[in-house]
């Protein structure tokens, strides 16, 4: 098994203006996703949702503390899952199910140290 991180990038503005119904739908979508992962031969081993980039503070080597995310982008990292999967095809099948209606996801293998 290899661990993969599924990084969720979405447009934050869409969430700022979202109705409670929409937020409820997104929450439900994540619950449904979690329930489906094992059917694909993978397992969720971690995951978090992050507060918006407005709450971020960045520290770049050799310069001051700055208010805001490390890189300003329209679609910002808003959360992640870490899954165990036998290969990339499985990880991609799982990532395809991952809710990200206002953006998309990136799949990265997690480095291992022997």
């Amino acid at each position: 098994m290899t661990q993969y991180m599924i990084l969720i990038y979405e447009d934050e503005a869409s969430y700022e203006n979202a109705s409670p119904e929409l937020l409820g739908e997104v929450m439900q979508a994540h619950n449904d996703f979690s329930a489906q992962v094992e059917q694909h031969g993978a397992k969720i081993v971690g995951g978090e949702a992050l507060q918006p980039t407005g709450t971020a503070t960045s520290l770049r080597a050799g310069s001051d503390v700055t208010d805001g995310p490390f890189v300003e982008t329209k679609e910002a990292l808003g959360g992640f899952y870490v899954i165990d999967a036998p290969d990339l095809d499985t990880a991609l099948a799982v990532a395809k199910l991952c809710p990200a209606r206002f953006g998309g996801v990136e799949v990265r293998p997690v480095m291992t140290f022997d």
Partner: peptide, 14 residues
Amino acid sequence: AVARIPYRVPSAEE
């Protein structure tokens, strides 16, 4: 190698 792209004939579906 690192992302583990499988060496496999895909399923009939894929």
